[in-house]
Design a binder for these strands. Structure first.
Lengths: 195, 195
DNA sequence: TGGATAAGACACAATGCGTATCTTATATTT
DNA sequence: AAATATAAGATACGCATTGTGTCTTATCCA
């Protein structure tokens, strides 16, 4: 029996996969290192050596998955569709795909950790929020230069599009294109444009 | 030593208090029946007799605290301030006071359970959302009859004011009157009125 | 005052945690 | 290819928590 022992990246990958599978099956709250080790066909020691606690493992998975989706940064992937409405639809769809990939179970686990006062998350959050604000500024600037009438709004309002997607994923798990269009037409367009 | 053993309501109350204190201290995720029993100066048996699991206890606390705040239903406590803006400010302030009372730690624990697919929460949630929609309908109707120009929006958009408060409590823990005013002026007024 | 009721004390097997130690497979260096 | 370093896997420890069960005892109420 040679080459039956996984190492390095391969090992980590199968642990991630096992963890995600188990989060979906039993939920983050009931997740144990024991189960993960068993599912990944490795040993508990291996897990404890690499991650001090479940949350560290979770964050690694999130980082991994979100960078897979937003391979480049979000700001590099937005498009000028010719109208603010089109741009927003595109942006929300793109952003939603991140959450769909990460998965609502994992997302809610992260949110839970925020709620519990885990201070590693907020740092990452603030970074993400700052980038998202830049994205919105760019979108609105594009719209303005096309001649669309844009309201002046503060940074908090600029995070609204992202918070809508986040909230929907958290509460209802399913966000389809119809709902995204609704957000754009009934909420975002009135908020960001004069009519 | 007589009258040293708590019973009924008194007992439950001190258990609730102990639980809330511990949720704040160690977080819902790390909460144990053992700790609660100790903090409430009672026995573990007492807890297991009354609640099948931690979540049942949590929900009882939430019910208790939210009914303390919204003693009557929300719809009975809204006021006609003379403008939609004033009405919205009043509504959000009222709604925020619920969350402030319940506490962000407990809120995030509930949200966590939703994320984990706990199906007792969504039922309560759907009820609450339906009531909130009625509240918004009433507010908008009042505004309309005053002559304010109101947009036609769907139910999902009607839940926006409540979702904003919820999200803020979840993410940032502190929601002051300044932020509420910002929500009203930059988001809600543009969404619900024509200008 | 006596019986009903509920609180509290304690014991149990089972499970997970975090750590530590030892063995063994795989990779790297010489 | 052999020697060495590195990392994976197996196993065991004490401890905490769980859920259940049983017995005792305080408190309530008729």
């Amino acid at each position: 029996m040679k080459n039956t022992r996984k190492r390095g990246e391969t090992l980590v990958e199968s642990i991630h996969d096992a963890a995600v599978k188990l989060i979906r099956e039993v939920g983050y709250a009931n997740l144990t290192f024991q189960q993960i080790a068993k599912a990944a066909k490795t040993s508990r020691s291996v897990l404890y050596r690499r991650w001090a606690n479940m949350f560290d493992l979770l964050m690694e998975i999130v980082d991994d998955r979100s960078s897979n989706v937003l391979g480049g940064q979000l700001i590099d992937r937005i498009e000028d569709t010719g109208t603010l409405r089109g741009d927003l639809l595109h942006l929300l769809t793109l952003y939603q795909s991140t959450y769909a990939e990460i998965g609502p179970e994992i997302l809610s686990a992260v949110l839970f950790e925020i709620g519990q006062g885990n201070n590693k998350v907020p740092e990452a959050e603030v970074d993400a929020a700052a980038k998202n604000i830049l994205v919105m500024r760019k979108l609105l600037k594009n719209a303005k230069s096309r001649g669309e009438k844009i309201r002046r709004v503060g940074d908090i309002t600029l995070t609204l599009p992202f918070n809508l997607i986040r909230m929907e994923n958290l509460m209802y798990k399913k966000v389809d294109s119809k709902r995204i269009a609704l957000f754009v037409d009934e909420i975002l367009i009135p908020v960001f444009t004069m009519q």
